[in-house]
Design a protein around this nucleic acid. Structure first.
Lengths: 193, 193
DNA sequence: GTCTATATGATGATAGAC
DNA sequence: GTCTATCATCATATAGAC
């Protein structure tokens, strides 16, 4: 009964999105061009704006995270508080090390550094996904400060490991990093400052 | 006796360099154009390449740090080891908070995130200015690992404070940050991991 | 859904006049 | 030391044919 081409079933849109994710993730916002994206996707440049409206629209779409970080943190915070910091590091690395997650997160990090809109978005995400949940979990004093400290160490981890690729952190196993960095996060969250 | 225009005494080169520093520091490598630099410097675009050869040459020149970080760290490490971490944070913030330092360092950080050459340069700088000196100071086990951990927290501090501008870290006084983060660095350097 | 054509403008770099 | 002129590319975005 359904005759004619059904909408949205040609792989083109996905190909463009995949190419955009890679571009934004590896080169950042400014250095990624619509034409370049179209080239690596093997499609016509016009299709990019046709599907996503503009470069910003494409960027927006490429930034969609495969997981909800807020829910993730919520889950992590739900467990016993003794090894809270360690669990955060483990989950953080798990999400980043999984390929579908690293793309958008790297794109967001790269974007945030030179694209103000993207920086605001990351600030927002951090606030919603880390600061707020943490503010509740660590009912202790100064939740904002504790959460920001936590963010600083996590972002530092991401930058050294995935962007700068500084050894030996870049190739360290999660089991190696979790205890030592977890201890820091644990103190930032529940310990004496 | 010296007749004619002496070389290098027209403020143009400096104006270009200042504009370039600001551009690279606030927008990153890709988003900063030679023409844009020339525009804010109030000079002809050709002069930019005339003085610096190419965009990479200009970038290189804009990255020249006003201080030698290696010497700085060396000095800091020279003092008593008890409050070593705290001194590192204090010095780090001092250098970043001073205007002439923040430009090139921000430029380097922004560049490193999306410009591979710049990332290599920062890796190199970290290695020479932080990893190596630390490897000597903390004669303990695993100096490479300790130094990388230190770098991760310092970079995280820089990104949250100066790039993301995440509160309350962004506007916190050095006196407020030094003790709490210094404690982390202290453990990374000399404490049990 | 796909593409050609095009408007409009910026980019990095060079050659050469003054 | 400064500038004009120019090259060859690239960019984002639109209108409209098929």
């Amino acid at each position: 009964m359904t005759t004619g081409r059904r909408p949205g079933d040609s792989g083109t849109r996905d190909a463009i999105l995949a190419a955009a994710k890679e571009g934004f993730a590896t080169q950042g916002y400014a250095a990624t061009s619509l034409r370049g994206v179209a080239r690596t996707a093997g499609v016509d440049p016009s299709l990019v704006t046709h599907f996503f409206g503009s470069k910003d629209g494409l960027f927006e779409a490429a930034l969609a995270l495969p997981v909800d970080p807020a829910a993730l943190v919520e889950t992590v915070l739900g467990g016993p508080t003794g090894r809270l910091g360690e669990r955060i590091v483990r989950t953080f690395l798990l999400v980043w090390d999984s390929t579908p997650g690293q793309g958008p997160m790297l794109a967001m990090l790269r974007g945030a550094v030179s694209h103000e809109d993207s920086a605001a978005k990351l600030r927002d995400l951090l606030l919603r996904s880390i600061l707020r949940p943490v503010a509740h979990a660590a009912g202790a004093d100064d939740p904002d400060r504790r959460a920001a400290l936590l963010a600083s160490q996590l972002i530092g981890l991401a930058v050294t490991r995935y962007v700068l690729r500084l050894e030996p952190i870049a190739s360290a196993a999660p089991d190696e990093l979790a205890p030592v960095m977890g201890k820091t996060l644990q103190r930032y969250l529940t310990g004496p400052l």
